[in-house]
Write a protein that binds this DNA or RNA. Structure first.
Lengths: 123, 123
DNA sequence: TTAACAAATAGATGACCATCAATATTTGTC
DNA sequence: GACAAATATTGATGGTCATCTATTTGTTAA
């Protein structure tokens, strides 16, 4: 489970139109599906949810192990995947590493799924 | 690869708040990740894109085989998964079955990923 | 009812991946 | 440096799934 960073940047910064409005090349489909694949795991969604709902919006990795009920290596593995896909930011403070959610990545993903209102049609 | 229809209905009709605004239970995380898993495949994204970009917004299953470069059973398999997850609608016309995209399902999914503007905070 | 085409199902296979235990690495403190 | 705590890596394993071929089922028309 890994995501090409450059591909993610293409998808999130170039203001790509919705996949519903244009043909997706195989390459584009692979890049985009890679991001959805990252969200296609319940543990990773719980991590995002846990981190985002902290009072200050960030959480230390060690705080996330117990509520998820997974081993430390597994949590570390999921955090890495989320970070490399651009869903999480991280900051080291001493021994601890604090993660926070990058809402822009979510919003960019959504822009691929929704149709602009003025473009909707009745089938 | 299968999606619980009732679970999907819960997620798409109950106006659930964003996963970034509340804790996700394990069950909720499993339901939601199931939908993302469906989108986490390049062939399925290409199918959605192909169908949505047809002039009338719908496409016969047989028209989708050649552009995807996959076998007929594989395309049928993907269409079934997309349909059962609520991403596609289908209508039989004689021998043919026409699929069309359900944009509401996409939008409902997105509502789980975005934070209402007034709720954003500076980290 | 038979032929022809579309779609679905069954079964098999290979690849990917979530998870763990064990270990290594990094960082701060004494 | 030595120890302790947090995080990352390695290697193994079991399950899931995308894909195929072969077959079956469904639908229309002759």
């Amino acid at each position: 489970m890994s995501v090409n960073i450059e591909a993610m940047n293409n998808l999130t910064t170039n203001n790509c139109p919705s996949l519903l409005m244009q043909h997706l090349s195989r390459q584009e489909a692979e890049q985009l599906s890679g991001l959805f694949k990252v969200l296609g795991d319940p543990s990773r969604l719980q991590l995002l949810s846990l981190i985002a709902s902290q009072p200050n919006g960030s959480a230390c990795a060690c705080e996330l192990i117990e509520p998820l009920g997974l081993s430390q290596p597994t949590v570390s593995h999921h955090l890495k995947i989320l970070y490399e896909a651009g869903f999480l930011d991280k900051e080291r403070r001493g021994t601890w590493i604090y993660y926070s959610v990058v809402p822009q990545t979510m919003q960019a993903l959504c822009s691929h799924l929704t149709i602009p209102v003025e473009a909707t049609r009745t089938v």
